[in-house]
Simulated assay, not measured.
Amino acid sequence: MDRALQQATSSNKLKLIKAECLAFLGRYEEAQNIANDILHIDSLNVDALYVRGMCLYYQDFIEKSYSHLQQVLKLAPDYSKALELYRRVKLLITKKDEGNEAFKNGHLQEAYELYSCALEIDPSNVYTNAKLYFNRATVCSKISKLNQAIEDCTQAIKLDENYIKAYLRRAKW
């Protein structure tokens, strides 16, 4: 992409392809910078909005991502990549919220199943999955599955090595 951009320095299409690739590589800040530069010029560029929404999603800003993807789909209802990600985001929000609600209401087995289901939605969303593993570990500790609680905290730490709450909770058990 860099070679192509050397030849076509003003091509927003190539810049956005590069930004999408950077996002898939986990280089979210670089991808967002490219998308933001384009959005400063064209605030309704659906490709740039999609890239920004995708970056937000993978950085665990799920609600913001959802808003960006809604905006993309209002502007371009047939944008297949945005529609696919939008459905995944919506399902993830739903399962996570349902799991939180079940936990809050003391329906621990249901919360466990909902968090487990949410973990299957997108294995590549590491930061959100780290939180889901942590939530499921909390449920496991309440239903006397301490070994699984420790394993889930370990999984959360593998996904996000800076997740202090997971370290603290694992050490507690």
Rank of each mutant, 00 (worst) to 15 (best):
T9A: 15
S43A: 15
V46E: 12
Y57H: 13
R87Q: 15
K64H: 14
K81D: 11
M1L: 08
L22F: 09
C55E: 11
I62L: 14
K158V: 01
A4F: 08
G53Q: 09
S141Y: 06
L75I: 08
S141R: 12
L85T: 02
I34D: 09
V89S: 06
L92D: 00
R169Y: 11
Q7N: 06
N33F: 12
D37V: 02
E161G: 06
S11L: 09
L119D: 12
Y115A: 10
A48W: 04
K95W: 09
E20W: 02
R52C: 03
D42H: 11
L168Y: 13
Q7W: 09
E29Q: 11
I121D: 08
L56P: 07
T154F: 03
V89M: 10
S11F: 02
A35D: 04
C140R: 14
S124K: 13
Q6V: 02
K90P: 00
Y163D: 01
Y86G: 01
G99Q: 03
L49K: 01
H40K: 15
A166W: 04
R88C: 14
S11C: 05
L49C: 00
S67V: 05
S11P: 04
S124W: 03
W173F: 15
Y127P: 00
K15P: 04
S144P: 00
D2Y: 06
C55T: 11
I164S: 12
L85G: 06
K90H: 11
I41E: 14
E110T: 14
Y163L: 15
T154D: 14
A48N: 02
E110L: 14
H68W: 00
R88H: 01
N147V: 00
W173P: 00
M54W: 06
E101V: 09
R27L: 15
C117V: 04
E29H: 13
Y115R: 03
R170P: 07
I150F: 07
D42F: 08
E20H: 13
A118V: 13
I157V: 05
E113Q: 15
I17F: 05
V89C: 06
